[in-house]
Amino acid sequence: MPTSIITTDDLREFKMELLDDIKNLLAKQASGKIKKYLKSSEVMELLQVSPGTLQNLRVNGTLPYTKVGGIIYYDAEEIQNVMTENRVHHKFDS
């Protein structure tokens, strides 16, 4: 059986290919859970809010959005961040 010499450059190249493969797998997995951008109707359903409440969240800057043409889009990750940042922790005294 012939032997081959593996150089540090070979290992570096292998590492980069492996990292690219892992990134691609994670991206595919993440895209299957929730879409990257949501329309207003999807956000209202997700958060269980009315159109007026959603508009208030936009106007007061709570919920970042992007408007393309007449359609408003929300980044799903930013919605999750807003929910996490506004989490209320109650401390009960005994």
Rank of each mutant, 00 (worst) to 15 (best):
E78L: 14
N81Y: 09
S50L: 03
D10W: 05
Q29A: 14
N60E: 10
K15S: 12
L25Q: 10
T7C: 03
Y74K: 01
G61W: 07
H89Y: 10
G70Q: 09
P64N: 05
E13R: 13
M44L: 03
N86G: 13
K23R: 15
L18E: 06
V88E: 02
I6V: 13
T62F: 07
L47F: 03
L11N: 06
R12H: 06
K23I: 10
Q80N: 11
L18I: 04
N56H: 06
E42S: 03
V59Y: 03
S50N: 06
I34A: 07
I71S: 05
Q48P: 05
L26G: 08
L38P: 11
M44S: 03
H90G: 08
V43H: 01
V59C: 03
S4G: 04
Q55H: 10
D75I: 01
P2K: 13
M44R: 15
Q55V: 06
E13C: 06
I71L: 06
L57T: 00
V88F: 07
R87C: 11
L57Y: 15
V43G: 00
P51V: 00
G61S: 07
G61Y: 07
T53M: 06
Q48F: 04
S40N: 02
D93K: 15
R12N: 05
D10A: 05
R58T: 03
E13V: 09
K91D: 08
P51S: 02
V59A: 04
T8Q: 07
K36R: 12
S94T: 13
G70M: 04
K67I: 02
G70W: 04
Q55K: 14
H90T: 14
T8D: 10
K15A: 12
K15I: 10
T8R: 08
D21L: 14
N81D: 11
D10C: 06
T66L: 08
K36W: 01
I72E: 02
M83L: 15
D75Q: 05
N60H: 11
I22T: 06
R12Y: 05
T8A: 04
T3E: 12
S4V: 13
I22K: 08
I71F: 03
Y74G: 00
M44N: 03
G52E: 07
Y37F: 10
I79S: 02
Q48Y: 07
L47Q: 00
M44I: 04
L19V: 14
I6G: 01
A76H: 11
L18W: 06
K35E: 12
I79A: 00
L47C: 05
Y74N: 01
K15C: 09
V88C: 04
N81Q: 14
S41M: 05
